[in-house]
Structures are given as C-alpha cells and as structure tokens.
Design a protein around this nucleic acid. Structure first.
Lengths: 218, 218
DNA sequence: ATATATTTTTAGGTTAGTCTAAAAATTTTA
DNA sequence: TAAAATTTTTAGACTAACCTAAAAATATAT
C-alpha cells in the first residue's frame, strides 16, 4: 500500500514520463510537486526500495512496470472522478481539479468500478485526457496543437494542454469547447496569432492560446 | 483547517458525547480510536488550543460549539456518502462504512452540497442514523430498542445500534430491514430472547440482536 | 482513612515527510 | 580540458502523530 505522498510522487513521475523516455530528474519532480530537491531524493530512495521506480544516483528515475500500473490507476481515478463531477454533480470543467486531487486517493476498488459503470465507461475526462483502463493502458488518439495547423486546415477540438482554471474560463468566455469544429482562416507571422472560425464566428486568438488547444485534424 | 487525525478525534468525541453530558475521558477516546491514552492527551492539548474542545487536566474533554459544528459536518458527510453508495452505486449497507470513513474527509463544500441535492436531501443514512444539516442540527426521532418492547407491542424498524458488517449481514439473512413492521409475540424470561413477527413470519431472536435494533413504536 | 487500583499525564523516543545548508557529482562554458 | 555553473545528494534539524515507561493524580475498596 502507498501513502498519499508516495502516490503523489508516482503520479508526478508518470506525467513527466509522457514527454520523454529518459530518466526523470530530481529537479523536475521537485518543480512539479513544489517541493525541494532534497525531499525528492529522500522519497525516491523509498520508492526505489518499494520497487516502483528504478533509481541510480545522479541519473534520475524511471517507473517500473509495477510503478506505472500504480500511477495509471491513480490517474484513472482522478479522471473518472472528474467526469463524475461534471456529468452528475454540475461542476464546470474549471472546478474539478482540486477535488479530484483528493478523491483520487480514496482506496476502494469497488467504488471506482461502480463509478465507471455509473458513468457508462467514459474514455476521456472533461479536458479531453484519456482515462486509463484497469490495466493502465491508454487509448491515445492522433491530435495536434492548434498552433501547428496550417492556414485552411481544420479539425475538432479534442483537448487542452493547460487545464488551469484561468485558461478554461477564458475558453468558456470565447465559446471554445471540446467537440467544436475549428478552422484556421489566417496565421500572422508577426506574433503567431491565428484567426479561426468556430460556430461560423471569426475569432482572433493568440499563440499562447493556440499552444494549449489540441485538435484532431479532419 | 483540521488534519485527518484531528477530524477523527473530533468525530470520536462527538459520538461519545451522545450518551452523556459529562466530560469524555481520555481512556474512552483511546478505546474508540484504538490508540493509547498518552496519544489522546497529546492530541487533546492541540484541539484545546484550536478551541474545538474544553479541557482541564484529569477531567476529560467537551466539544465547544465550534467543535460540535466541525464534528457534525464530518458526520454529515459520512452519512451522505453512505446514502450515495447505497442508492447510486449498488453498495449494500454492510459495505459502506470503510469507504465513507475515507470520503468524509474530502474537503469541498460544493461537492457535499451537490451530493445532497443529487440524493434529494435525505434525512437518514442506510442504517437509520440521522444526517445533520449544514448547521449541525439533527432531527432525532422517538425510537426504542427492540429489547425494551413489551409482549404484543409493535412498531417499525428504524435503525441499528451495531452497524458492523457481521451484524448487518445477519439481519439480511433473517430478512430484517429498515421500514419493516415488527411485532413482539413472546418474551422469554429465561434468556431474554424474543419471538417476533415480521412479514407474517415468526422469528426467534436473541437478546443480543434485540439490543441492537431500534423500533419506532406504533 | 488509608492502602490499592486505575486513570491520566509527562518524559523521552520513533517514523514519515519535510526543510536548510553544505558537500559531491555532473554538465556547461570558455 | 579546466574552470564555472548547475544539479544532486548528504547531513542534520523540525513537526505531526504516534509509542513505551514511569510519575502523578484520582477513584475505589477495605
């Protein structure tokens, strides 16, 4: 069994490993968890003894298969709870993160199975992130950052990169939601801003926004 | 804000205060929480500084009004989650306790409000215990232990005293549920066992069982 | 009322998880 | 490739929540 703190470390390493297959550095983990590198070193030793990570001094860590499974299960719980909050309890997509951070640590296999059933076995959370299955497998779909689309390309909005409350509220204000069709009408070389069409409305969005929206090209 | 451990102490004291208006002894708390008296003394000092209990050495503790409100809120969350598990997620009444012990510590006022709404503002949990309102008030109904009923008296089963999984499973096996009409047909002086009628079936039950079932007399 | 038993508190220690500061190793730069 | 910068680890300390053992206070029994 893993403590709350151990679970948070596993989850952090899991997320960091998505971008790379190299060892995850002590500093990267410290930054993600807003803690000190020395604390990370301590915890890594503990996780290494529990055989959820492989660790050699000064070389970062990698999750073992066992560690990956534990981590994916926490992510699974997090994302299922997010769906539950939005679908059943009228939370908006910018309100769910902090509560799901707590709920993901509840230990009850039956509970999460029943939540999954109750929700009809969802495959993605409210931000478009895939929900791992019980074995920890995820179903990744082909998606591109909106900023990488060329003029006249279009697709469906399928996810966000930044899921901070501020960014999500901004999207709400602009009428940008998952499932919407988006077409790139113009790209400005000057500041990399875009003009897009969504619901037959023209919208000008900055590069920062375009760098945080995922599109499934059509 | 209170730690998980502090919340568990507050809840324990809250439950112990139901039976008495005297100070709750260190030993009673230790027994309830399966810990040592010395640990209880330590924690009591901390709770006393946080002004949720009144404490004088060697005289036990009492919750302050503030402490009562905090404790009642935890109990409220526990019982609402139990209803949710039974009503929405197909848990049986003997499976909910351990999960609710975890869920009761989730901190999100919106979450518990929405759960309450989603469930249609239930007043009692699956074991017949009343759910405190947001201010911590509980609606106590007139109820008697089945063991105190006289021959030929009858009433509705409205609660259990012991909510251990073993006892609840035993009740399931005998067909005893909340809401059932129960009539006392015989009382044996010899061992204080009872013969009762439930669903037009005659049942013989021991004093131990009768001491753990609450009846609303009719 | 005094001796005995019980309860409660104190004193001092442990573990998990964090921290700061300094030492050691690695990486970058010139 | 040697010096400088950065990263990582180690050493030592802190807090929360627990523990054991002993001392102190209270309650019980003769």
């Amino acid at each position: 069994m893993f403590t709350l703190s151990e679970e948070n470390y596993l989850k952090a390493i899991y997320h960091l490993e998505i971008d790379t297959d190299k060892g995850i550095s002590t500093n990267a983990i410290a930054k993600k968890l807003i803690t000190k590198a020395s604390s990370v070193t301590d915890m890594i030793k503990k996780l290494s003894e529990k055989e959820v990570v492989v660790y050699k001094k000064y070389q970062g860590v990698k999750l073992t298969n066992f560690g990956k499974k534990i981590a994916a299960n926490i992510v699974r719980k997090h994302r299922l709870w997010e769906v539950f909050l939005v679908e059943k309890l009228n939370f908006s997509w910018d309100e769910v993160h902090d509560v799901a951070e707590q709920l993901e640590h509840i230990k009850s296999p039956k509970l999460i199975d029943q939540i999954d059933t109750f929700l009809g076995f969802p495959t993605h959370d409210p931000h478009g992130d895939p929900i791992p299955d019980k074995e920890g497998n995820i179903n990744t779909i082909e998606k591109s950052l909106l900023s990488t689309l060329l003029k006249n390309e279009s697709g469906i909005c399928v996810g966000v990169n930044d899921s901070s409350s501020e960014f999500l509220k901004f999207l709400d204000k602009k009428g940008i939601k998952l499932g919407k069709q988006i077409t790139v009408l113009e790209k400005e070389d000057f500041d990399d801003s875009l003009t897009i069409r969504i619901d037959d409305i023209k919208l000008s969005i900055s590069n920062k926004i375009a760098n945080n929206l995922y599109i499934k090209k059509s």
